[in-house]
Amino acid sequence: MDINLVLLILMMISTLWTVMCRSLIKATIGLAVTSAILTAIMFRLNSALAAVFELSVCTGLITVVFVSTISLTKPLTHKEIEELSKARHKRFGYLPIVIALAAAAIYFLKIPNDFSDSSSMAIRSQGIPEDVCIVLWNFRKLDLFAQIMLIIAGSLGVATLFEERKIDEW
């Protein structure tokens, strides 16, 4: 339990860093670090397969996509943009205050435990096997099908968005 608490606090710190960082590349690295800590928490919560998925896809693939997008959209006049962003970025400084207030508010919100009926819960959850592969294949075939559709749609979408028209665009 203690390690979970430490991991959660670390995740919170990296989230704060992601939001408050001025440079986009550093924010992306912060996102990757958050992903990695999330993976560690997921391992501790008995969810090994999903943790591996999260690590390879989110920490790996999405970070690469972000970094390539950022490098393709670097502004031309570097110095001016830096000046502007310093002024704009002061607003992000309020985030720790907002977080502190929210933390205090949530801490004193007592959420009652309405689910202490443990016997019926145990009976109900016996129907679902623990192994992810069996659950995915037997119970969630439609989701697998939808994932295929999503990947096709995503790739068609990216192909469409990046296609240049032969006609002169101006």
């Binding site: 969630r140 439609l142 989701d143 939808a146 994932q147 559709m149 999503l150 749609a153 995503g154 068609l156 979408g157 469409t160 968005l161 028209r165």
Partner: peptide, 25 residues
Amino acid sequence: RDIFSMYVFLEVMAVATFVLIAFNK
């Protein structure tokens, strides 16, 4: 007949729609 599958198919429809709205670029 499943709330999560309904949500996932909504996302399939939404992703296709995102691209279709931006079709003229």
